[in-house]
Design a protein around this nucleic acid. Structure first.
Lengths: 247, 247
DNA sequence: CCACATTTGTTCGTATGTATA
DNA sequence: TTATACATACGAACAAATGTG
């Protein structure tokens, strides 16, 4: 009794250690995007593991979006600039395993986009406003397909104006997930013309509010617009949960 | 001219096809959590690929949090219930590689926690409120270390009461990142006692607002509390950006 | 344009430690 | 405890792809 307290040893796989070390190098900035990893054969020497182990580690790093390797490339795997694809993938999986309802996703989108405009109201420049206005003009002129793209451009400009990278990425990701889940439904909406017109009007109001520097107003408009756009495709219960954000 | 429009063929790796098929089976519900995949040797027969290819695929699936395999398990890899670990991992990576400032992270935390309380005001039950009250009591009684844990418990209870899984995960993740970046600074804060007392008072006000069902008030209190807690550790410029959320 | 050397993608065989019956 | 099947890990080999001279 009272001897040294030993802790349980968790056996960690060889490939995991390789992943950890390379990941650390990338995240700490020791390896910057565009740089190359040593070849697989060199890595197996440096880590003292077999080539299979090196490959398993590279697959994991690739799945996390940190590196990319191409067959025959003499320069070894390439360190990638950050992209939110892994984040999108996780969120899509989360949604598909249906742990996430469409209502939750739209709710999250309302939160994120409202935050983006709130921040944008304080930092927007004339260039930002011009980008938004151009996107709205494109929405007016667009047919069905172009409308969505212009809408994306608008929200992207808003997010960039907000100046918070995390908000920017999250708005982008959740928008992609929502659109991926619902685009077929939206295409069947009966009165699509009216919906689009109303959406355009909403967006113009948001621009006006941003120009005036009224963040709270812009946020309210954004939430309302999102609600109007998606509520019709949600069951009553989830619609009610969405209204919690409209106060 | 005008012949058939051929699309470029993207060569897809063998392991990718294995990943796709198993992923599809899991996400479609054909494989449910708790079920087992066939053994690696059986998989290599079914997919007509080598053992290494199967293993690379399993690594990717494991990195995405869909399966887990243990050495010696006679049943093969286990299909996991979805957990947000992959999402956490992606978001942590985002924070680390894209060099998010502490100000951006705190800003994001203000947005997420405010959203959580706003939702919680509509859905909180007596149990949720009891959990929060217990956490606050623990904060009062705690020494330095226990205080943080109790604070986590409080915000976790709020997030669960909100009923949006995505909000829950995001609050949790960003809190962990922020705490990881700043905990050493916080420990050196001169008047720590006063800060903790004020934080406790804020939390009690939030509980009262939630009990009254006043979401907007609870959200304002939450943002203010977060601002008070972190603002002292931020440069003036980032502090100003934070105040954009206090309106 | 054509080899050439190198690298990745993939396969196969083998040895070892481990978990279950 | 023994036996069996499994995952882990290693190493050698060949094909396909890529960059270079």
């Amino acid at each position: 009794m009272g001897g040294p307290r030993f802790e349980p040893v968790r056996t960690v796989r060889a490939y995991e250690r390789v992943v950890e070390q390379i990941e650390e190098a990338v995240e700490s900035g020791a390896l910057t995007p565009g740089e190359r990893l040593p070849s697989e054969r060199e890595l197996m020497v440096q880590f003292s593991v077999s080539r299979s182990t090196v490959r398993e580690a590279l697959r994991v790093l690739q799945a996390r979006g940190l590196v990319r390797s191409r067959p025959g490339d003499p320069n070894g795997a390439e360190v990638l600039p950050f992209s939110p694809v892994a984040l999108k993938k996780s969120m899509t999986t989360l949604a598909r395993v249906s742990e996430l309802s469409l209502g939750e996703l739209v709710q999250f989108r309302m939160v994120m986009d409202a935050a983006a405009v709130l921040l944008a109201a304080h930092r927007r420049t004339e260039e930002h406003l011009a980008e938004m206005a151009a996107a709205v003009e494109a929405m007016k002129a667009a047919d069905g397909a172009g409308f969505g793209a212009a809408d994306v451009a608008f929200h992207d400009a808003v997010a960039r104006a907000g100046g918070n990278k995390l908000v920017e990425v999250c708005t982008d990701v959740v928008r992609a997930v929502v659109v991926g889940l619902i685009e077929d439904k939206l295409a069947q909406t009966p009165d699509q013309e009216a919906l689009m017109r109303r959406s355009v009007a909403h967006h113009e109001d948001v621009i006006a509010a941003l120009r005036a520097g009224d963040g709270p107003l812009a946020a309210r408009l954004t939430r309302q617009s999102m609600y109007d756009y998606y509520a019709g495709h949600l069951p009553a219960e989830e619609r009610a949960a969405l209204r919690a954000l409209l106060e």
